[in-house]
Design a protein around this nucleic acid. Structure first.
Length: 119
RNA sequence: UGAGUAAGCGAUGCAGCCGCGUGAGAUGAGUCCCAAGCGGGACAUGGCGAAAGCCCUCUUACGAGGAAAGUCCGGGCUCCACAGGGCGAGGAUAACGGGUAACGCCCGCCGAAGGCGACUUCAGGACAAGUGCAACAGAGAUAUACCGCCGUUUGCUGUUUCAGCAGGCGGUAAGGGUGGAAAGGUGAGGUAAGAGCUCACCCGGAAAACGGAGACGUAUUUCCGCUGUAAACUCUAUCCGGAGCAACACCGCGGGAUGUAUCUUAUGAUACAGGGGAGCAUAUGGUUUGCCCGACCGUUCCCCGGAGGUGGCUUGAGCUCACCGGCAACGGUGAGCCUAGAUAGAUGGCUGCAAGGUCUCAACAUGAUUUGCUUCGCAAAGGAAUAUUAAGACCCUUACAGAACCCGGCUUACAAGCUUACUCACUUA
RNA sequence: CGGGGUGUGGCGCAGUUGGUAGCGUGCGUGGUUUGGGACCAUGAGGCCGUGAGUUCGAGUCUCACCACUCCGA
């Protein structure tokens, strides 16, 4: 997590929910917005509806691990919030990571080879 | 073998790759000097941030639970002036003795209730201080005379006594449906009829005596016969100051008005309004849980903020073992050990193997059940259920569940499996 | 961390010294109307969040638990 800070403040979350771009799948919803700095800010939200503390902690850890493993693919300078949904509880790792990666792709957050060539 | 009772154990393991937090240690880009070298010294220094401060690299050690949960009690710790006085109000607990820092907890014991028993459960003081409540039913609910029984009397009828019917007055709690409860129970005497009115036995209560550390138990004497309810008010005894780690301490950090000073023609700009000591006045706000007295703190006014950092933060009523005391809870002595400390929240993610569980199918064994023959049996069908073996599929990798200042308890949740002691029933020896 | 409230027919709510649980609306049936609405009559629908306890008797009192919700720091 070299280029990422945690997103802590409540108003930052609110700004993302109101003004950020978003997509969603069965597993998670993703919000993002430019923050004009050199690092990314990541927040993960798991609501109480998804289970007890153990369940929620596990979901949060898996999403964090997904972000860590794929960090090198992402562009910098964004605030991102990942909101876990009901499907996340029983998702397999492959399914989950492929789906979330696709969402990040849709939001134009990933670094593409052709873009690199242009710049 | 079956059915139980009580107490406990247990909480997947190993390997690989990639990561996280804390502690300890090491290290640093560059230049110069000393030195053979190891290394040492000086200057200087990366990232985030306003600052305080934190981080970045490598090595190594350690890294959730029995309930970490619920937040129901009790304490430690911190602050409120280390607890001011008076009045009032409120809360908690409730047999007895012990344990404990303390408790509403634990142990032992007494009593009551339940169970054949092992054993379990109990907010278990006082209704015999006072007040309240007891629907419906019932004659009557804390005192009662509706029916009945008895005595006496009036009238009427038959009429010698006397009997019957209707009514009045008085006595009675033996009998009578109801009710959770009808006011001690049974028998005898007694009486007009009856009645603890008297007696015997039993039941219950109060006081005395004996035993016991005590709750209490025992039988004797005297007195009494009094409904239930205090998780109704109340009374009795004992205890209780408040708030909580977002406590608290330190470091760092605003704006406007107004006043003063300086600059300026003016508008305006900048700086300060900070600290310590003494005194006066009385106003206001706050703390002291309600009121009064007393005490203390703050004050030029308003707004915003108190969203940052560090400490508090883990050595403690600590853990393990041995011995001693005690029925036990527990205590004492000695030896050894150090065992999470996050802050949007570390203790993980993925993969493989083994183990375990659930389901499906197959084989073999036992064989509930059904049918036939005609009878203490045999044959056939059948495939419930159980056990074993093999294969396959599935599993949030396992139940319940995630430290958030720390301890002692309580309550609640908990898959599969296992252990020990005891009780009852059946069978065999 | 601390404190409070609520849970009763399908929905919204009453129910206090403990004594046979109700109202509005919705639903069913019948009437009224040419028909519908409105109106009238009538009926069904409740283990009072769950489990224990106190009491003769609990929606009510006590305790534990569950769910929802609000407030303060």
């Amino acid at each position: 997590m070299n280029h990422t800070q945690p997103l802590t403040r409540n108003y930052e979350f609110k700004r993302l929910y109101n003004k950020g771009k978003s997509t969603a799948s069965r597993f998670v919803a993703v919000y993002c917005i430019k923050n004009y700095s050199t690092v990314n800010k990541l927040g993960i939200t798991v609501s109480t509806k998804l289970g007890g503390a153990v369940q929620r902690n596990r979901i949060r850890r898996r999403l964090k691990e997904f972000y860590r493993l794929n960090e090198h693919k992402f562009r910098k300078g964004f605030s991102i919030v990942i909101v876990a949904r009901q499907g996340c509880k029983t998702a397999k790792w492959d399914e989950l990571s492929r789906s979330v990666l696709h969402l990040f792709d849709k939001l134009n957050l990933t670094v593409r080879d052709d873009l690199k060539k242009e710049t």
